[in-house]
Structures are given as structure tokens and as C-alpha cells.
Design a protein around this nucleic acid. Structure first.
Lengths: 118, 118
DNA sequence: GAGTTGTTCTAGTTCAACTAGAGCAATATG
DNA sequence: CATATTGCTCTAGTTGAACTAGAACAACTC
């Protein structure tokens, strides 16, 4: 699983890490039980602070995507092994439609955070 | 057009205002040429600073959704009058699928900001 | 026992968001 | 033309999340 980060992006670093992991799961690039690099390792290779990586891991655990324990590290949850094909299709459809209308990504995200669209 | 704001939300206030306007457009509740309240008016009724409202208006202008000029105020752009039915459908589909998988809204937004999902 | 890894604590820095107030520029209106 | 409205610009201060840094500690592996 490749995890990268863009320091110039407006998105928080811990969120970029979390999203990279979510993406890998949705794409099926990782499977349940797979182990992530330790926080100290990943922090070193991304040139970030350990706390930032741990913040990302904590976020993913609260979402149920990771199992995180001291001594052991972080592993992909069993519940994360489902089929995400429909989600990917829905995402692609939405992005295509949004682009067709000329909406910015920011605008689209704004709409999404207000769930009740009707 | 009803514009409300939640001061306790993590989302920036200016973004909440912008999204409220985007939602109204997507829902077809406002039509091209329609005039928004002046920044000072809206700031008063929402109990916010004028600058915060102007920030929202500026954002929407950069997205092409508003025409903003001094003396005149802010009006919905002509280009904003299109049909958003497909977008609403795509949004609903995505949210339903996301909920089915138990993803948090934050996780979904994270995925969306990385456009290339394939 | 030794090493690894996450957890918790304190502490300081940076930056976007927000607030506040003033004056200015463009537009509308009588 | 005079006045009011409205957005624009500038300065300035506050707040909180994100990030960094370092240390000690607890759970787990080997």
C-alpha cells in the first residue's frame, strides 16, 4: 500500500494519511488483517511527526477500518474486506456529473456534507 | 432562500453559508437573477461578521455561481439555472451506498477529494 | 529480558477562520 | 447632484485546530 502526502495541500496531513488508507481499501489493494507500517516508521518515511500519523490511525480506528494496539501495530479490520464496487461506481458517476456541471470539488464536498439533498 | 448556520459545527462558517446557497440552487429553490440579502443584512440576521459573509459570497463568485458587485449586491448567475436532477440522483445514490457500508461522512468526503478512484 | 509499538502527557508554533472598525469605490435612487 | 446602499480593502487582534517535539509509560512480540 502506497501512502503519500502533499504538504502544500489545504487538507490536514493526518486526513491525507487516513484517506490514502481508505482509498487502498476501497480499491481492494489491501485485505483484512494486513499490517500497516508502524507509526514511527511511517512518520520517518513521510518526514512527519509520529503524533500526526497516530492521529490518522486513531481516526481510522474510530471509523472501524483499523485495529490498532500497542506492541502489535495497526491492521486492517476484518469488516473492511467487503465489496466496494458499487461505491466506486457511485463515486465515479457523481464526479462525472459534477464535472459536467462545472462544479468545483470544494462545492461538491460542501453539498455532500449536507446529507439531505432533496 | 433560507440560509442558516451552525456555530458548533466543525465546518467553517463562510463555507456553511456558501453551501446553503449551493444547495438552494441544486434544489431549484432559487432561479437565475435572484438577489441575495446584502452582506450586512445577512451578517446581522445570522449574528456573524460582515467579512465572514463576504468571504462566502467571494467563494461563490469564484465558482461562477454568483455575480457580486458593489452597490448592487449578489445575484444568482445565469449559468446557475441548469438542470441538477442527475446530480441530485448521483448524490443520493452515493450517500445511500456509503451508509450501507457504514462509512462516516468524513471518510466519504476524504475519498471524494481524491478524484481518481480507479 | 530486550525491543517494538501505541498511549498519554506537557509544551510550544503556525496558520486559517473569525471578529472588529474604518475608509473607499461603485451603483442605485430620488 | 446628493444621499444611501453595498461590496472592497486595509489594519489589527483573538481563537482553535493542526502540527511538531520530547518524554515516560503500558501492552505486546520474540
Amino acid at each position: 500500500m502506497l501512502i503519500t502526502v502533499d504538504p502544500t495541500s489545504a487538507a490536514p496531513l493526518f486526513d491525507q494519511i487516513a484517506t490514502a488508507v481508505r482509498l487502498a481499501v476501497v480499491r481492494g489493494e489491501v485485505s483484512a488483517g494486513e499490517r500497516l507500517p508502524s507509526a514511527r516508521e511511517l512518520a520517518d518515511s513521510l518526514d512527519l511527526n509520529v503524533h500526526t500519523v497516530l492521529h490518522a490511525y486513531r481516526t481510522l480506528r474510530e471509523e472501524g477500518l483499523l485495529e490498532v494496539r500497542r506492541g502489535r501495530g495497526a491492521t486492517i479490520s476484518a469488516s473492511a474486506g467487503r465489496d466496494y464496487q458499487d461505491l466506486r461506481t457511485a463515486l465515479d458517476t457523481l464526479v462525472a456529473e459534477s464535472d459536467r456541471l462545472g462544479l468545483t470539488r470544494q462545492a461538491l464536498v460542501g453539498l455532500l456534507t449536507h446529507e439531505e439533498t432533496r
